[in-house]
Design a protein around this nucleic acid. Structure first.
Lengths: 245, 245
DNA sequence: TTTAATGAGGGAACGGCGTTCGTGTCAAGT
DNA sequence: ACTTGACACGAACGCCGTTCCCTCATTAAA
């Protein structure tokens, strides 16, 4: 950083001011901002107290005045990120499509922020942004005629599916950093898996061997869409009466 | 440890034997065994190289002759655990029920082994035990008349759902150790969440406020069963023709 | 205007982590 | 009897989250 030179005596007529003359004053917001910048650039594992502090030109101890915990910082990051999700205006005629749109949107936001989905998994959503999303989903299912109990569980199941997919996505994207040949490595690995499946004993694993193509095909988007379709169909199967509003 | 005293000369007539006289000879199997014992007792976070080594009465460096990585150890643990899953014999008439039975069985095994589900998430299943499970699931869907492409994706979606549910389950079970009053703490927290939901502005979150009971009810088992039902219904909705065999 | 209280900032340290290096030790092969 | 090679492991490196405690700018009270 070299903003300080303690080896030189203070010149006369100049009071020895604080170390960093005009740095931003360190608040929860700027900490979360910085943490997300590190997350985007190097993944969730790189978001350590020390790293964030260093990025702000200070020591790790300074963060604990604004954030109680590393866990709290992670949850704050998640809430900040979920604020980027854009929700549609409920259209009763398209409730199933809109449910899918929301899922795709969440996935888009998650996968654009490294491994952040890992924070979401196994966390009861209480942040305002996540609540707004849940509200939109519940609204769509209400106008679609899904029974309340089913709708409540569907929010849960959808969330789990989106989280798990996003995590899976980023696991293989983030392997070996975001170097240019990460894709090549991934494809190499996928081909290894394919060869491994094909080479399995056909008498013990007839279905797997016979379905290698189906099991290993599908880029992230397509696979996600299919799984989503299964879920939405399942949800829709509970609809008895048409919506009233 | 103090099993050795290099500062004293070796007494005559006694060859200075190895430190530990008759310890088990350290193999990949005993390492995985020990790791799982720690996992069961104190959770996945406690499974560190040092901890496992200590449990075996040795240093962490010794493990690296049998296990390349902590990550590899985790995957070996997962594979060992999935070996406990008991699979039904395919009965075409009950393919949907049996698909559910498998899911429940996996969940039972996972939740009986601490946070092990965290390892499963975002990992292409290549271990023999996980492959056997996938084979059974594919077989059930084949006889059920589910199109191969859908079946392949369904295996994935089911796995994600089971993993995510098991993780969520253990997150709140494992909070504050497995002390006797962990449940009480959990219920206290759940009541806080309920009160928080009820206190939300009803104009912005009408559905959430109106569905507090549905959203926060359901012990793990019931919730899991409902989500599973949604998934199976979705899968079944793709069945066009009845099975041939 | 002076003084006292407040509380954020941050240097240093503690205990623990994954992993590597180099050395020691022993059993099997020659 | 000697070599060799695989395994065991003490020690160390560079990380980590978190806490202790002192410095010091700011602010409220006198």
């Amino acid at each position: 950083m070299a903003t300080q030179r303690p080896d030189l005596p203070t010149p006369p007529g100049r009071k020895p001011r604080r170390a960093a003359p005009a740095r931003q004053p360190l608040s929860q917001d700027v900490i979360v901002d910085t943490a997300i910048r590190v997350l985007d650039a190097e993944g969730l594992e790189a978001v350590t107290m020390r790293r964030v502090a260093q990025e702000l030109g200070t020591g790790p101890a300074s963060l604990y005045a604004h954030v109680s915990d590393k866990e709290e910082l992670r949850e704050l990051m998640l809430d900040r990120v979920t604020g980027e999700v854009v929700l549609p205006v409920t259209d009763p005629a398209r409730w199933q499509e809109q449910l899918k749109e929301i899922a795709h949107e969440i996935r888009r936001v998650y996968t654009s922020h490294g491994d952040i989905a890992k924070v979401s998994i196994g966390l009861i959503p209480t942040g305002p942004n996540l609540l707004t999303i849940a509200e939109a989903q519940l609204d769509l299912m209400r106008v679609g005629g899904v029974p309340p109990k089913i709708a409540a569980l569907a929010v849960d199941a959808l969330g789990m599916y989106i989280d798990a997919d996003a995590v899976e996505d980023t696991v293989y994207t983030a392997r070996l950093g975001a170097d240019e040949d990460a894709w090549e490595h991934f494809h190499r690995y996928l081909n290894e898996v394919r060869a491994y499946f094909r080479g399995l004993p056909a008498d013990r694993y007839p279905n797997i061997v016979g379905m290698v193509a189906e099991l290993t095909s599908g880029a992230g988007d397509e696979r996600f869409e299919f799984g989503l379709d299964i879920l939405i169909r399942g949800i829709a199967s509970y609809v008895d009466a048409p919506p009233s509003a």
